[in-house]
Amino acid sequence: MTDSSSNERQIQHVTNYQDLVSTPFHGEVNAICWKRELKGDFAEIVNSIALKDNITEIDTAELLDLKLSEQGQLARETLLNDLKVLKENGASPSLNLIKYYERDDAYPLFPTDVYSYHVDRSPVPTNTYLCTYYGEPSDILPNAQGIQKVLVPEIRAELKKLHGESDHGFEAFLTEYFFDLHYQAKLDAIPISLGVGNLWRLAVDHPESKVPPCLHRAPIEKDGKTRLLMIC
């Protein structure tokens, strides 16, 4: 049985930007969180921008052009500051209004969309930063509470059918189509919500990483509520 009291051992909490970007991952720690109670009306920003698609990226110029109340201006200041600080630290943040992500219907037994627990991979050292300002937050899963989907017998059998009868090149096939990045939660798993307003840094699978990559997923949107998410 999973011990909920030790469920967050992989998380280190910090209280400022500098510690968020500079604290090294170590041991079991592959997620760093700056827990924040943000001021301002982020719903006003969401409602002030017309959705162009299921995902609409908001640039700085568009944010600055919005006519907002005092509370809306406070929210905008937070967004602009988060984008600025992350860019100054070498990240490439994107601020998005998300109605929904595309679902992977091609492989119903082993979907590879972002609603599935997955890790991020990069050929060079990097991090994943994210913050949900409005709407449903993402969640993460302790690595010990997930199993790589390609190791689940029935899934692996179906993937072998998809690949063909020969085992030659099978592992490369799993990597090429990103099947190896996805995980299934164990029956006693306890996901950890990333919450609203908190700024997170998650470990990525890259050649120089000293810790396992962080398992995370996007939430299923509720009641058609648009999310406001910064990610990079």
Rank of each mutant, 00 (worst) to 15 (best):
136 E>R: 01
212 P>A: 14
52 K>F: 00
63 L>Q: 02
13 H>R: 14
103 R>M: 10
12 Q>E: 07
137 P>Q: 12
147 I>G: 08
90 G>Y: 12
87 K>D: 04
45 I>D: 01
200 W>E: 08
111 P>H: 09
223 D>V: 09
74 L>T: 01
85 V>C: 06
158 E>M: 04
93 P>V: 04
35 K>M: 12
36 R>C: 03
48 S>F: 05
217 R>Q: 13
99 K>D: 13
100 Y>A: 06
180 D>Q: 10
80 L>A: 01
48 S>Q: 11
34 W>K: 11
187 L>V: 11
144 A>N: 06
21 V>T: 11
164 G>E: 04
70 E>S: 09
126 T>C: 10
114 V>P: 02
3 D>N: 14
60 T>P: 02
225 K>I: 14
202 L>D: 07
126 T>G: 06
189 A>R: 11
55 I>D: 02
113 D>W: 03
138 S>C: 14
162 L>N: 08
51 L>R: 10
43 A>K: 13
131 C>I: 12
152 V>L: 15
41 D>T: 01
110 F>K: 00
58 I>D: 00
24 P>D: 13
32 I>M: 03
167 D>C: 05
179 F>A: 06
229 L>Q: 03
58 I>V: 15
154 E>W: 13
15 T>Y: 12
194 L>C: 15
224 G>P: 08
45 I>P: 01
1 M>D: 13
193 S>T: 14
80 L>I: 01
155 I>N: 05
62 E>I: 05
81 N>S: 14
37 E>A: 12
77 E>P: 02
188 D>A: 15
225 K>M: 12
56 T>L: 12
165 E>P: 00
224 G>N: 14
168 H>F: 10
71 Q>D: 04
6 S>W: 02
18 Q>V: 05
223 D>W: 08
92 S>V: 06
214 C>L: 15
74 L>P: 00
51 L>Y: 09
227 R>P: 07
41 D>K: 01
211 V>A: 05
205 D>V: 02
35 K>R: 15
8 E>A: 11
52 K>S: 12
130 L>K: 09
12 Q>H: 12
125 P>I: 03
86 L>V: 05
127 N>V: 05
62 E>M: 11
177 Y>H: 15
90 G>I: 13
10 Q>G: 08
154 E>V: 15
220 I>K: 12
